[in-house]
């Protein structure tokens, strides 16, 4: 659905996005993580042909960006939720959606049906004629998401959809995005809420002007923490470490207080061997835990150290 090759955007001497090479598959929810100023919004604007690229190429929903003849067709096929909802406050929810539907050239009957379906899904149908100015932030965000969907796009760009929302409103918006995910929509989600990315996204990419890494949240966490097992034990630590090496071969084992931290290659195969080695060496096994980093750990490490996961 999205393929970019060396996509770069410079504003004068400042490079906002540097050689971005990325693929997003149809039906995938792709999370784009990065600190403020990392180039996430610039990327979305380039991919939706709102701003030009400096170099590189990108194909979005079958259209090359930067091709003037394809720009309007591309914008028919994508929906965008910008960082600022940008609704007409004195207009009603219905009027806001109707205007954008008309600009998207949705036929009148189909537009009415689409607006009703979306507002009902978002629990806003009863309030459809009220001015948006009277809505809470969460409700406005929902109207803005509905606006991005009113023409039934094949690809949805959501730029910080839960930014500045209270926890309850964030939850409502997240649940709606999960509903869209169940409909197998392709979603490109800009966020710096790691928890949100982990819960919603099939894959994530971490951007800090350059793309630092991509992968599933699980892959990234595993890549950063490695595969390590922590055994809380009582008994002769050195003897137990030697017994583990004897069973699993030479490997790094750290002794920290009453715990042995063992590098493992296949936890399902190695953990029973570790338990057996400890018991065999006369130790008592109190607990065996698989270590895993959080996505936050991975993100912070990659952003601050510029490291790539193993």
């Amino acid at each position: 659905m999205i393929h970019t090759e060396g996509l770069t955007k410079q504003f004068g001497p400042v490079t906002a996005v540097d050689h971005l090479t990325l693929d997003v598959q149809e039906g995938e929810v792709f999370g784009f993580l990065g600190p403020n100023g990392a180039g996430k919004t610039t990327t979305v604007r380039m991919l939706s042909s709102l701003i030009s690229r400096t170099s590189g190429s990108a194909e979005v929903a079958g259209h090359q960006i930067g091709d003037p003849s394809a720009e309007l067709q591309l914008r028919h096929q994508i929906g965008i939720l910008p960082e600022n909802v940008g609704l007409y406050e004195s207009s009603s929810a219905y009027e806001n959606l109707e205007y954008y539907g008309q600009l998207q050239r949705v036929e009148a009957t189909a537009l009415r049906q689409s607006i009703e379906r979306l507002l009902r899904m978002l629990d806003l149908w009863e309030k459809r004629d009220q001015p948006v100015a009277t809505f809470s932030k969460g409700m406005k965000q929902k109207v803005a998401i509905a606006r991005a969907l009113v023409h039934d796009p094949v690809l949805l760009f959501l730029d910080e959809p839960t930014a500045n929302l209270d926890p309850e409103a964030s939850k409502t918006v997240r649940e709606f995005i999960l509903e869209l995910k169940r409909e197998r929509r392709t979603i490109f989600l800009n966020t710096h809420h790691l928890d949100e990315a982990e819960r919603i996204c099939d894959r994530v990419g971490i951007l800090n002007t350059r793309l630092v890494t991509t992968g599933t949240p699980g892959q990234l966490k595993l890549g950063m923490s490695g595969r390590r097992t922590v055994a809380a034990v009582d008994g002769p630590m050195e003897t137990m470490a030697a017994a583990i090496r004897a069973r699993l071969g030479d490997r790094r084992i750290e002794i920290q207080g009453g715990s042995l931290i063992v590098d493992v290659s296949d936890p399902d195969r190695d953990n029973p061997e570790i338990a057996a080695a400890i018991v065999g060496a006369g130790g008592r096994l109190r607990q065996l835990t698989q270590v895993s980093a959080s996505l936050e750990d991975v993100y912070l490490k990659l952003i601050h150290e510029g490291a790539s996961p193993a």
Partner: peptide
């Protein structure tokens, strides 16, 4: 001021 230009520009309108 309502920040509604970006969504407007994102429609297939030149």
């Amino acid at each position: 001021t309502e920040k509604s230009l970006e969504p407007l520009l994102a429609t297939p309108t030149t």
